[in-house]
């Protein structure tokens, strides 16, 4: 042990060094913020609560194809579909449930959806005292979709589901009448 080391040990040098560092931090702007008064900026790609979307004319995009149900790794989606009594030939989802308590927010359902009826939003504050409220049904999902439409569309763009709003227009056809395909 050198003399310097002995000296450092005696004067608690390393402790003083540490205290110097922590003392300096008294003058650094805090990195924390005061939730819920301050909130994080949520990126567009954020995978928050799921929602169902409508076409611009208000018609439901979902055709009840059940592919989201098949794609879901946590089996939290249940779709009940049938023929639309008003428009024969049109398949619609009469019931659509997402058990948000089971959902793992992987976004696979959005990736699977062949009509981009599903999207994820920036919504993350929906804690409740009643667990049953967390079984999102069709009206609730559409309500979120209507409320968070801008976020939902941004999500789809961010995750390469729709190039942009205009480009997406051309896909927006209604099953089972397919548009003539561009060759």
């Amino acid at each position: 042990m050198t003399l310097k080391e002995l000296f450092d040990k005696a004067v608690l040098r390393e402790i003083l060094d540490g205290l110097k560092t922590t003392f300096k931090h008294l003058f650094v702007k805090p990195v924390t913020f005061q939730y819920p008064h301050e909130k994080r900026a949520i990126p567009d790609a954020h995978r928050g609560a799921l929602c169902l979307l409508r076409y611009d004319d208000g018609a439901e995009r979902c055709v009840g194809c059940d592919l989201c149900e098949a794609a879901c790794p946590s089996r939290c989606i249940k779709v009940v579909s049938e023929e639309d009594p008003e428009t024969p030939l049109r398949r619609i989802a009469t019931e659509f449930y997402i058990d948000i308590t089971k959902c793992v927010f992987c976004g696979f359902c959005v990736e699977a959806c062949p009509v981009n009826a599903l999207a994820m939003t920036k919504m993350y504050e929906y804690s409740t005292a009643n667990k049953r409220d967390l079984m999102f049904d069709k009206p609730k999902l559409y309500q979120i979709g209507d409320q968070m439409l801008v976020d939902a569309k941004k999500y789809l763009v961010a995750h390469n589901q729709e190039e942009n709003d205009e480009a997406a227009m051309q896909y927006r056809y209604k099953f089972p009448y397919a548009p003539a395909k561009k060759s």
């Binding site: 592919l67 981009n116 729709e162 480009a167």
Partner: peptide, 22 residues
């Protein structure tokens, strides 16, 4: 899985999409 823009317009990609996820 095929890209979404192809799924929307091409049958072969649509089929791939369904098979891939189901």
């Amino acid at each position: 899985a095929p890209t979404k823009d192809r799924v929307f317009t091409n049958l072969e990609s649509m089929i791939m999409q369904f098979k891939f996820f189901s």
